[in-house]
């Protein structure tokens, strides 16, 4: 016997929400506190440092390398913003019942996410190659931890994105179109949030040094 949970796809009259929408906002609330903790620590550690980025034990500072990576980071910002707009477009396509457009926008979103990860890989390996590992100084530690956690969010999101366009995920569109549209909306909220975090990480870690 399977139980039907109320308001899984229809809206509860007094809150005007379906369950997953409330759930994802609560999840995002905890994410705000997660990244809030990171930013708070960033401010504290930066305020305690005499120079920023600090000079490591080898007498070097990552400052010169950062100038070079601004280009890559800007490119990545554009990639994420693009993926965000295509994400919202794929949701709109579902609302217009246009499944082929939905698939197209989803694939663009996926490509952007993959491009982001590839660029990130080059960025990381370049820094590590030059000896700027997390242990080098507190800036590098924060840089790898904060972007690393963000990348984990991208990777997690990427798996879900791919699942949605695979036959297994998309078949819900035929059975329960409303629920599928809700899923895309809720996932979209997460994806935009990841984009939003990057919007703050970008100036904080790359530009304002």
């Amino acid at each position: 016997m399977d139980i039907k949970i109320p308001y899984n796809e229809d809206l509860r009259p007094d809150t005007g929400l379906y369950n997953a929408k409330l759930g994802i906002w609560l999840f995002l609330a905890s994410e705000v506190m997660l990244f809030g903790g990171l930013f708070s620590s960033y401010i504290l550690l930066r305020a305690g440092a005499s120079v920023w980025p600090p000079i490591g034990l080898d007498g070097q500072s990552v400052a010169h390398l950062l100038e070079e990576t601004i280009g890559l980071a800007t490119f990545n910002t554009v990639a994420l913003i693009t993926s965000s707009v295509t994400m919202v477009m794929s949701w709109v396509s579902l609302k217009m019942k246009d499944i082929s457009k939905f698939k197209m926008y989803m694939w663009i979103t996926i490509s952007c996410a993959i491009i982001f990860l590839i660029v990130k890989y080059f960025e990381y390996s370049h820094k590590i190659h030059e000896g700027f590992i997390p242990a080098h100084d507190t800036y590098m530690a924060l840089y790898f931890t904060m972007t690393g956690l963000h990348v984990l969010h991208i990777i997690g999101g990427l798996f879900v994105l791919v699942y949605f366009v695979m036959p297994d995920g998309i078949k819900m569109w035929d059975d329960e179109p409303i629920r599928f549209t809700n899923r895309i909306e809720v996932f979209g909220l997460y994806w935009h949030f990841v984009d939003l975090v990057w919007i703050f990480l970008f100036p904080v870690l790359y530009l304002l040094n």
């Binding site: 905890s30 242990a135 530690a141």
Partner: peptide
């Protein structure tokens, strides 16, 4: 639980980095 635990998660990740990656948080 929802709003207080994430900062501890941050702290745990920092300490994990300190112990594994040799950082100095």
């Amino acid at each position: 639980l929802l709003l207080a635990f994430p900062p501890l998660e941050v702290a745990a990740i920092f300490q994990l980095m300190d112990r594994i990656a040799g950082t100095s948080f």
